[in-house]
């Protein structure tokens, strides 16, 4: 018995997207292979590394551990939806400035994860950043530069939002 394909209605990065998928396909697989959102990366494919992080109705999840059919009626935000139409999101800019990436496979997951953190907590401590992003693995950088980039981006975003003056 081969179960048929299912129609799934979602909103991805603000736009309505309807797709067909098999129940066994992960959200990650459909995003990448069917819909062309290749920002989320397939790395461990078992929930350890966080390279496939997306927001599902505002909640940070590993898209490799979500069945695409579960996205019915839900909003998805991928790294493609974080960057503005022109240029980069401040988080992305800070990752470049701080050299917070080398091979880059983990980077979209870190950006999405950091974006989710700063939405919830615009003033995280270093410890809070480290704990929040403990589900995102990077085998190149040793993390320090990533943490520095996120803290710098948080400070700049606060400054932008409120005219807050930064204490160096």
């Amino acid at each position: 018995m081969t179960p048929g394909k299912v129609t799934v209605h979602t909103r991805i990065n603000g736009e309505e997207v309807t797709f067909l998928c098999e129940p066994r396909q992960s959200l990650l697989e459909v995003l990448r292979m069917e819909l062309g959102f290749t920002g989320a990366k397939e790395c461990c494919n078992n929930g350890n590394c966080g390279a496939c992080s997306v927001l599902l109705d505002g909640v940070l999840v590993n898209s490799c551990l979500v069945l695409a059919v579960e996205a019915e009626g839900k909003s998805i935000l991928t790294v493609e939806g974080i960057a503005p139409a022109e240029g980069l999101h401040l988080l992305q800019q800070k990752f470049l400035e701080h050299a917070a990436l080398q091979c880059g496979i983990c980077t979209p997951g870190f950006i999405v994860s950091a974006y989710a953190l700063l939405q919830r907590n615009p003033r995280p401590s270093e410890q809070e950043v480290r704990r929040w992003m403990a589900g995102n693995l990077c085998r190149c950088t040793g993390y320090d530069k990533i943490i520095a980039a996120v803290l710098d981006a948080a400070a700049c975003l606060r400054e932008k939002a409120s005219g807050e003056v930064r204490v160096p």
């Binding site: 929930g47 966080g50 992080s53 599902l56 909640v59 940070l60 999840v61 590993n62 551990l65 979500v66 994860s113 989710a116 953190l117 929040w132 992003m133 403990a134 589900g135 995102n136």
Partner: peptide, 9 residues
């Protein structure tokens, strides 16, 4: 139980 992504699910 897991990191932020796992806690979300």
């Amino acid at each position: 139980v897991g990191g932020t992504q796992i806690q979300g699910r």
